[in-house]
Nucleic acid binder design. Structure first.
Lengths: 345, 345
DNA sequence: GTGAAAGCGCTAACAC
DNA sequence: GTGTTAGCGCTTTCAC
């Protein structure tokens, strides 16, 4: 069955292809009568427009590229889901690109996406290397950054207030009486990590608790890394009574590290995570965490991009959403229970 | 900066566009000398071919569509990750489509993908409604099914031996001495669920343990559903001593249902999951499960599709991979410990 | 080895 | 309101 074109429809309807094109794109002046007749004919024939051809002349592909480190990470999976939902509502398809935070994969994908003429790009990779970004900006490809970095460059972005998140986590622990609070950050390369750390320090200051660098550890995104880094923290002679992990995976790793050392959570160690992925309710004890409004993050980012695509000449903007503390079972007042098998000094 | 075309390159190189096209696609006869010179010039100019135009004439977009129920489900996220990895290696981008198992969303996406002329489609949705499939097959759009259904239709597919998976899970529990084994299936619509149930029955037979329908419950994919359904099972006067849940999420839900009733796992209840997602190592107790070779599933599916795209006229095939039991901490011999707070008859 | 030219299927002026 | 036509940027015969 040969695939049909707009010519076939035009012929069958006894009109020109321009007319058909106009009813497809519902623009131009068309009498209601011929409009309906043509719609009817298209339906009968089972005609579907070829969007590649359409894209070539109209310069719009209705596709957006989504760059993220790894979609198998629950945080990014949830983000991707919400992004795809919103994009689909607006008539766009999304192409996923796993960069593993590698700069060469990142620019590789960027080149591909550019060649394929995606209408816009959403970056949730956090790193956003200047050279990659430069490439895009130069080509005037609409872009929006999500959830992480908001570098010096003038690009649209949507993210949570990481400083506040760090502050919320630390002050929660401090107000529970904790004073030796370990913090595990994802990477010092990330602006988000730096901000969360600053928030943590700010809370410390407010509680007149001295900042001590020995309590800050750098990790990466993975759970195994969380186990390892938290393990090192817990093997100290003087060990922390609480850990603030900069993502839920690291927090879960911390719980596991504690458990394998016979330290129970929250009795022997309080743990706070970040992101509020669905994992929090899944582990035991359920994880207290700093919640990111993932859905809103996603929606706002897509909408921001969409407005650019519509050609609305709006000023570049940064949308900052506020995180909130989600209390569950992994934190408790320091010293409120007799700790068993616990050698805290 | 106006975007360049093949004409600009041809002009600068003093050759025709046909020649340039040939060096880009490394086909046709081109002298090594001019080839290099043109490559050089393209690099200097920063020229990148427009793949939309290329697609319009060559009929190949180097994009494949991936339909799945929900990418925020860890199983599908891992699958998607591996699919994207392999596709990327082969030079393809992947467009994700979340169907939520709704037939209208499914056919909606299918229409879109067809209009965008993706080179092929990967379906991991399990349902694969005949009408949707018919649409694709009719258009001769290459397709491969993953991980779930393998209906009557002649389509390529890759999946695990679900019967064997069910058998493995049940016989593990039976050999531990369990006789009242609840099974929670995702949906009776799914061939995979039916097969797993058959495997379960087969193991029962082998152990001369009578099959009793009261032990089989139907659920959906979610953890909340797992909690609910497992809860009903556990609230029976005579309750099961083990539960075989047809995915890890349901298994985790079962553990939570048990915990909230004061039943500990594995002492008061053994639980086996299915899929072997990374969640298994994350919960307490770590989950014994039937492992799917997700990576191989993904690779094989992409390769199968790829071979079709290359036009290799191969017979349709079904690749069946074998699952394996992954032992962790959520199962134990029935009766080997005094059960506490347990009213088993 | 290289080039001319006819599409691929559609959009968007512009003319009528 | 509807039709004509010139592209969009590339691939691909088929001459030379």
């Amino acid at each position: 069955m040969k695939t049909m074109t707009i010519y076939d429809v035009a012929q069958k309807a006894g009109v020109s292809i321009a007319t058909v094109s106009k009813v497809i794109n519902r623009n131009g002046r068309i009498s209601e009568k011929t409009r309906e007749r043509i719609m009817q004919i298209m339906a009968e024939m089972g005609y579907v427009p070829n969007l590649v051809a359409s894209a070539l002349s109209s310069k719009r592909t209705y596709m957006i590229g989504l760059l993220l480190p790894d979609i198998s990470n629950p945080y990014f999976a949830e983000l991707a889901r919400n992004i795809e939902d919103r994009a689909h509502e607006l008539g766009y398809n999304v192409v996923i690109c796993n960069t593993d935070n590698q700069i060469d994969k990142e620019s590789d994908y960027l080149t591909f996406l550019q060649q394929k003429s995606v209408d816009g790009i959403l970056m949730a990779t956090g790193l956003a290397h200047p050279q990659s970004l430069g490439l895009i900006l130069e080509k005037k490809l609409p872009i929006a950054l999500i959830a992480r970095d908001a570098p010096q460059l003038a690009v649209n972005s949507v993210y949570v207030d990481d400083f506040m998140g760090g502050y919320l986590a630390a002050s929660h622990l401090l107000s529970l009486g904790h004073r030796r609070i370990g913090i595990i950050v994802e990477s010092m390369e990330l602006e988000s990590s730096r901000q969360r750390l600053k928030g943590y320090r700010s809370a410390l200051d407010e509680f007149h608790c001295p900042y001590d660098e020995q309590w800050v550890s750098v990790s990466d995104f993975s759970i195994v890394s969380g186990i390892e880094v938290a393990g090192r923290l817990l093997d100290r002679k003087i060990r922390p009574t609480a850990i603030f992990a900069c993502n839920d995976l690291l927090a879960i790793g911390s719980i596991q590290a504690a458990r394998s050392r016979g330290i129970s959570v929250p009795e022997g160690l309080s743990v706070v995570g970040f992101d509020n992925t669905f994992l929090c309710g899944m582990v035991d004890p359920a994880l207290t965490t700093v919640g990111q409004p993932i859905r809103e993050l996603a929606r706002n980012a897509v909408d921001l991009l969409h407005r650019q695509l519509l050609g609305e000449e709006q000023p570049k903007q940064r949308i900052v959403l506020l995180p909130e503390l989600v209390l569950r079972k992994s934190t408790q007042r320091y010293g409120s229970f007799e700790t068993v098998g616990d050698i805290n000094l």
